[in-house]
Structures are given as C-alpha cells and as structure tokens.
Design a binder for these strands. Structure first.
Length: 423
RNA sequence: GGGGGAGUGCCCGAGUGGUUAAAGGGGGCAGACUGUAAAUCUGUUGCGUAAGCUACGUUGGUUCGAAUCCAUCCUCCCCCA
C-alpha cells in the first residue's frame, strides 16, 4: 500500500512543493488540515478545477482534513497570475451569487461528517470584508516586498509587455490570498495549501506571511497544469468550456468530452482525474495497447468521471444516448427509445409550425447560426436527416417523414439534435 | 503636469484615399482518411437566395470616393517630471 505522497507522485500530481521530506513527515505525524481555494469567476466550476478539488478528496481519503475555500473576496479583485490582460470587474452581487453556487458545487466532492477529518467550507469574504485600509496596509502590506512581487513570473508579462499593464487592484491580489492562508492557519491550524501550478506565487505569499505573522512554518504543493498534446487548452470543446454544472454542460456532453480524449493522454488523465488504483489503470492501459480502436481507456475515464460528477443515473443516460447514436442503427430505435433520448438530454427543440424546410429547421433549432451557414452545411454534405445524408435544403420536414414523431438531425460527425414539429 | 505611441474581423496581425468584406497566421466549422483518437490533406469562416446591406474604438467633417486625411471624445501603453 502506497502512502499519500507516493500515490500522488505515481499519478503525476505533484508539480512543485516546499521541502518534500518535511512535508512527508508532517503528513505522517497525524491529521493535517489542507486547503485549496476557488474564485467565483463563473457560476460553475469546469473540468480544469477538478484536479485540485479531487486532490482535497485524496487527502481526506488518506486521513487528513480538507478545507474548501471559495473566494468571495478574492473574486472581487481578480487574480492576475499568468493572465495576459486586466480583467473587468464583476459586480458585487454577481460575485456573491457565483460564490454561493460554487460553495454548493465544491461541497459535493468532499465528505462532511462529525469526524476530525470532516471537510470544512469557508469563504474569505468573512475575514476580509471588515478590514480597513490603514490596518491592512500596516499589518499585512508591510510584510510584502514590491520588488519581490514584481519579480514573480506570474505577473512578468503584465509588467513587461508593451501594450498591457496591471492595475494596483490586481497587483494586490496576492496579499489577499496570502492573508487567507495566514487566517486559516490561525483559525483551523491549516498547514498545507494546494493549487494549480499557476498558484505557486500566491501560495508562497501565504507561506511567508504565516511564518512572519504566526511564526509557523507551513507547506505548499502545486499540481501540474493539465495539457493537451497539441498545446491547446485542456477542457474546451467546440461549444466552450466543459462545466461541472449539468445546466451548462449536459451529462451526455460531459461523458462525450471524456470519451473523445486523445489516445496519447488517456493514461495521464486516468491518473490525474480518477480514483482508480494503479493496478486497475495499468490493466486498462494494457488492454488499450492491444486494441486501441476499442478505446478501453476513454471508456473507463468517461465512466468514472461522469459517475463522479453527475452520478450513476446520469451516467447510464449518457451511455444510452451514446450507444443509440454511435453504435446502433437509427432506424432500429423505437418510440420508447426516442422518448428516452429526449429525456436523457439529447439536444431537443420543438417548433410551433407543422412543417418547414430542412434549412429553416436547422436555423430555428439553432443547429446553424444563420441561413447562409445552414446552406453551407447542407451543401457541404454535413447534414443527415434521420440517418440519411441530404444535400437538398428545400427538403421538407413534416409529419410524413418523421422518425417516431421527431426529426433526428446529425451535423458533422458527432453532433446530434432532435426536432419536433407542432400541429 | 509635459512628451510620445496605439486602438482593424473570434484572436494575433498586414493595410496609410479607390481594384479592400479587408493580406497572412491561429482558432472555429465542414469534407476526405480513420477508431466518435492523433497526424495529414481540402474547402470554408460578417448578414442576405440575390440585388444589396452593415463593418476597421466614438462622434462629426473633408472628398465623387475613407480602415486610410482632419477634428472630437473614449480607452490603453511608454518615457520625462
């Protein structure tokens, strides 16, 4: 049986840390409190946030106490780390709404109970909102050297680029995050902060501040940046980020995201994202080697992630849609299958008219953004209606040519829509 | 406070009076090949069936004609104090 650090190392989950030996000893000495923060920059987290979030759960599983911090205060300021441009501020009300949503969302990944390893949810707004400026500048600001802050790699491009600057607001961000660590150390004896590799500077700010103000030596650990082999950003699809919220990314789309992971990244993602044991992962990858076209790895990944984020039922739904659309024959579906697909979350649109042309259908169902685009798609042989390709944009959609009452339209290779016409 | 520079399509970036719906690259979308993979190749990428319309930070102006010239305002950057 591996210990925590060995497990993390095997999974490739450690990027950078303060002295690893003393961190190991510290973790062996008993229950440690570890925290990670999530700023409300949207009303949901996305797949990229899963790595640190699941990391907290890994710590909890190994007998430590996770603290999930949502940045109600830091979200008001904006983290400049490795950001190319200054960001516009969100209103206080928006930040507060997002904060509440994230608090709910993050809570589902760690365990809350009465034990000493029970998770804790905090909001940094609670201890920063009452600070006054003079106090903050004297007590906190005095511990930060602007010279050092300016040397940070994370703000370098903002300081050196010709056409970009950085406001004092964003520049101060690291003081707030530093303060968080110091407060959590004081109030909850928190001794480890984890975060993405871009957070190293901010975490170190907290380590330093805690040492100076609390006289405690605390630890830092960063996780690797998840990448795709072509260097583009992980976690994006055609339609944007892959969110954890089912309202923003359906469980089916979420499942498909993982199922479509490139071969060369499957093993890495299985290690980073799932809780499958090394033996299981190696077994899956051995099978994958022999029969890559069956994509054992992608399936294991998609199953594990969908179940973890959306639950067993949603996973089954996603699998049902996937099977119906990609494995079977559309004409084999019966009306119950169609109803199930609709309920499972296949994109669906009901139009009020009783008939229309294929082109109108595409545009009204928002499959194509404009008539022009719609024509291009149809002419380009990208549209299949109820399983058959068609290049006729005048093709009529009406009651006579439905598939159990609906029109199933496929755009490109893997985008499916269901259209129902009214009476 | 003084001086200088910049704002172009999803992004980067060329363009300094007409042939510019705007080079090039990236990204997106689609087609071919495959395994719903990767790589590659091809097409396409403001709206409109079309005539045409709307676009180069804002608002005005000069001109037969402006992204290109002038003024105004807004935003950003750099340098000096």
């Amino acid at each position: 049986m591996m210990n925590l650090i060995e497990d993390l190392q095997w999974r490739g989950l450690i990027n950078q840390s303060t002295d690893l030996e003393s961190l190991k000893q510290h973790l062996d000495s008993g229950v440690c409190t570890v925290y990670s923060g999530f700023d409300p920059t949207a009303d949901s987290l996305h797949v990229g946030h899963l790595v640190p979030l699941l990391m907290l759960k890994r710590f909890q599983d190994y007998g430590h106490r996770p603290v999930v911090l949502v940045g109600g205060a830091t979200g008001m300021i904006g983290d400049p780390s490795f950001k190319a441009t200054e960001r516009s501020l969100n209103t206080a009300q928006t930040v507060q709404e997002w904060t509440e949503k994230l608090q709910q969302q993050t809570s589902q990944f760690v365990r809350f109970d009465d034990s000493e390893t029970s998770a804790l949810a905090v909001n940094n707004y609670d201890w920063t909102s009452s600070l006054n400026v003079i106090e903050f500048l004297r007590d906190i600001g005095k511990h930060f050297s602007v010279n050092m802050m300016m040397n940070r790699e994370s703000v370098k491009q903002r300081l050196s680029r010709e056409d970009q600057g950085i406001s004092f607001t964003e520049f101060s961000y690291t003081l707030l995050q530093g303060l968080d660590y110091k407060v959590l150390n004081e109030q909850h004896n928190c001794t480890l902060q984890i975060g993405g590799s871009d957070q190293w500077g901010n975490i170190i700010s907290g380590v330093e501040l805690t040492r100076r103000m609390n006289n405690n030596q605390v630890h830092a650990l960063t996780l690797p940046l998840v990448t795709k082999s072509d260097g583009t950003k992980f976690g994006k699809t055609e339609s944007g980020a892959v969110w954890l919220s089912a309202n923003k990314t359906s469980p089916y789309a979420f499942y498909q995201f993982w199922l479509n992971v490139e071969d060369s990244k499957v093993e890495e993602y299985l290690k980073l994202f799932t809780f499958l044991s090394p033996e299981v992962i190696m077994g899956i990858m051995a099978k994958q080697q022999g029969e890559p076209h069956l994509r054992h790895g992608q399936k294991a990944l998609a199953n594990a992630m969908t179940e973890l984020v959306h639950g067993a039922e949603a996973l089954e739904s996603a699998q049902r849609i996937t099977h119906a659309l990609f494995k079977g024959n559309l004409s084999d579906l019966d009306s119950a299958d169609i109803a199930q697909l609709k309920q499972d979350g296949m994109p669906y649109k009901k139009l009020s008219q009783s008939s229309c042309t294929l082109l109108q259908g595409l545009v009204e169902a928002e499959i194509a953004p404009s008539n022009n685009e719609g024509r291009k798609l149809i002419k380009g042989n990208a549209i299949a209606l109820n399983g058959d390709k068609t290049t006729d944009f005048e093709h009529s959609l009406d009651a006579s040519n439905t598939l159990h009452g609906v029109h199933v339209i496929k755009k490109g290779k893997k985008h499916w829509f269901m259209l129902e016409l009214g009476k």
